[in-house]
Design a protein around this nucleic acid. Structure first.
Lengths: 138, 138
DNA sequence: GTATTTAACTTGTAAAAAGCAAGTGAATTT
DNA sequence: AAATTCACTTGCTTTTTACAAGTTAAATAC
């Protein structure tokens, strides 16, 4: 039987999560990187969520500092920086997919592409594998 | 093939999630309700995270407004209010478990009870079933 | 049956964070 | 060499949070 009454998760995993990506903007940046193919400062800005330039810069720096995101000069256009999820960032995919599944169920406004949600529920491993391949080849 | 380039998740599930529970304190309250057996205002306050009284009241009201948490007079001690996760709140369990799994992997400080993390990885359905039963009988 | 305590907040104010508009600097294109 | 692009930074206003103290309603103590 699981001990629910444990009061001392000395280092609490949820608290740790919050310290690493525990605000709205971080989640939205991770979403952009994970599912939307956005990789540049400008693309995050233009995602239409209304994030301010200073907040975006600050969150990207935090995510990089925490090892969730990497930042490199773009090899093609050397004046640009390219942001990518690290392995640690990519490992948040199950959490993000669980959130998407939840939102699709409880929000009538949520419009996840039918194909996506169908695969998420019928063959989540395949979906995850496809998403991971996309992230790695980029 | 999954369409990663979809720019228009008109109602984005991640954005919806953030609007419903998208801050540190909400996550910690949900954690307390879901895994720690805390159900009273005072118990959340004394959880040791350092939340202020006004912020706690505000977050509980938000969570209730959003239908994640219910609030009732305690039947035994009628001066107290008891907070519980609704079905909608309980449905966040997969997301929370995914976060716990991630934190356990990437944070050496995180100390989830061995039995918990072992079951999470070896038999997640059983773990979830046990947790759900606890939540429902309370 | 009045007085004290418990429980769950609310209020006021100071500090911190976010939002907004404009500016900077380095590289690139013209 | 001048103008443009890109990724920020800076300064200021507004909003949110933190902290301490106060309020209210019910329950127990005397």
């Amino acid at each position: 039987m699981v001990d629910k009454k444990t009061k001392n998760w000395a280092g609490c995993p949820v608290r740790f999560g919050m310290s690493q990506f525990g605000d709205k903007w971080s989640f939205l940046i991770i979403r952009d990187l994970m599912f939307k193919g956005r990789k540049y400062y400008n693309e995050f800005l233009e995602a239409g969520e209304g994030i301010s330039t200073n907040i975006l810069a600050s969150r990207l720096a935090d995510l990089e500092y925490n090892g969730l995101v990497s930042k490199h000069q773009d090899t093609i256009k050397r004046s640009k920086y390219i942001y990518n999820l690290t392995e640690k960032g990519i490992a948040l995919m199950p959490m993000m997919l669980a959130m998407i599944d939840w939102a699709e169920e409880y929000d009538s406004q949520t419009e996840v592409p039918t194909e996506f949600i169908k695969m998420l529920r019928e063959n989540p491993e395949k979906l995850q594998k496809e998403l991971l391949e996309q992230l790695k080849q980029e």
